[in-house]
């Protein structure tokens, strides 16, 4: 290539060797093909490419708008559903609270009644028992007195003297009081 053009240059002289851009003999050729190219590109763009791309872009923005509005709607619905759920939940909670309170009050009433009854029974039993214990204690005191009297009489008899029953009784009673 280099040697080939070198030969051509030498033949043509220095004027053409400088800048091929200023070789006016090639201008008609370049301008003609440039105009052909521009016309072809212009028709390809304006008839096919640009309408198609602008349709695609418009469709896309339409789709995006639709999707966004649909999403907005769904969001609103979800919010409504959440509110309904919250309301139902609050109501259920209130009802549960009420039922629990009622149940608790009923149980408390039953419990109070049972406690009162039990208390009454317990106090009755206690009184009975106290009475029985008092009786037993009294009985025991009597028994102690009898045993003491008998023992004292036997002791006196054993020591070889006799004593009448009245003086022994008096002595034992006096001792037991002291």
């Amino acid at each position: 290539m280099a040697t080939e053009t070198h030969g051509v240059e030498a033949a043509h002289g220095a004027a053409e060797a400088g800048m091929p851009q200023l070789d006016f003999s090639t201008f008609p050729n370049q301008i003609f093909w440039l105009l052909v190219t521009l016309v072809v590109i212009y028709f390809v763009l304006s008839k096919i490419a640009l309408p198609r791309i602008s349709t695609v872009l418009a469709e896309r923005s339409g789709t995006i708008m639709n999707d966004i509005s649909a999403a907005e709607e769904l969001k609103l619905k979800a919010k409504e559903a959440e509110e309904a759920y919250n309301a139902a939940l609050a109501e259920a909670k209130a009802q549960a609270q009420q039922i629990a309170n009622e149940t608790r009050a009923a149980i408390q009433a039953d419990l109070d009644a049972a406690t009162a009854k039990a208390d009454a029974e317990i106090s009755a039993k206690t009184a009975e028992s106290e009475k029985a214990i008092a009786e037993i204690r009294d009985g025991a005191l009597e028994s102690v007195k009898d045993v003491a009297k008998d023992t004292a009489k036997e002791l006196v008899a054993a020591m070889g003297s006799s004593a009448d029953a009245r003086s022994i009784t008096a002595a034992v009673t006096a001792r037991m009081k002291g």
């Binding site: 590109i41 490419a49 198609r52 791309i53 695609v56």
Partner: peptide, 18 residues
């Protein structure tokens, strides 16, 4: 360059995909 333009803008957009 015309072929390049056609490849980019016509063939490239032939799918018309969203």
């Amino acid at each position: 360059s015309v072929i390049g333009v056609i490849l980019l803008l016509v063939v490239g957009s032939r799918g018309r995909a969203i």
